[in-house]
């Protein structure tokens, strides 16, 4: 069974996403909404990460060789600056959050097939929160894009 591989990927991706939100929060502290919300969302990701623990325990950790390299989620590199930098950083986080979102979705399907009620409940909650992360990132990027791309220096 390869579900442990995906659970491991998901847990790791949540950790990286949390870290990336935190980087954005601190790197763009002059944008108060980005700053405070990214911290809040980072906490949600960490909560997801921790909530996955008992599930991972239950299904067992994946073996190293089962986890192909390209399934690792990449975090943000360096924080960029300026309006376009903010846009680009949010876009990177958006990509990462998309990976998390779709992984939850896939894990959820496996959980249904396994009739794993505990996992299903967790997926329902975390998938919804991750979708909201995406919605927020999209809202914030759409708001800022014209100004960054047309009017900013």
């Amino acid at each position: 069974m390869k579900l442990p591989v995906y659970l491991g990927l998901l847990r790791e991706a949540e950790r990286v996403l949390a870290e990336s939100f935190r980087q954005v929060a601190d790197g763009h502290a002059a944008e108060p909404d980005v700053h405070f919300l990214s911290h809040t969302l980072a906490q949600q990701c960490l909560a997801h990460y921790e909530a996955l623990d008992p599930i991972v325990q239950r299904y067992g950790e994946a073996r190293q060789e089962d986890e192909p390299e390209r399934l690792h989620a990449e975090g943000l590199g360096r924080i960029r600056s300026g309006p376009v930098g903010l846009l680009r950083d949010l876009q990177d986080v958006y990509m990462l959050a998309s990976v998390v979102e779709i992984t939850w979705k896939l894990v959820g399907q496996a959980a249904e097939a396994l009739r794993d009620r505990e996992l299903l409940e967790l997926v329902a909650r975390c998938h919804k929160e991750t979708s909201t992360h995406l919605d927020w990132l999209k809202t914030r990027m759409e708001q800022t894009a014209p100004q960054a791309l047309i009017a900013a220096q």
Binding site: L41, H133, D135, W136, T139
Partner: peptide
């Protein structure tokens, strides 16, 4: 909107 983040409901 989502009340926590302000994300737009499409």
């Amino acid at each position: 909107h989502d009340l926590v983040t302000g994300a737009v409901v499409g």
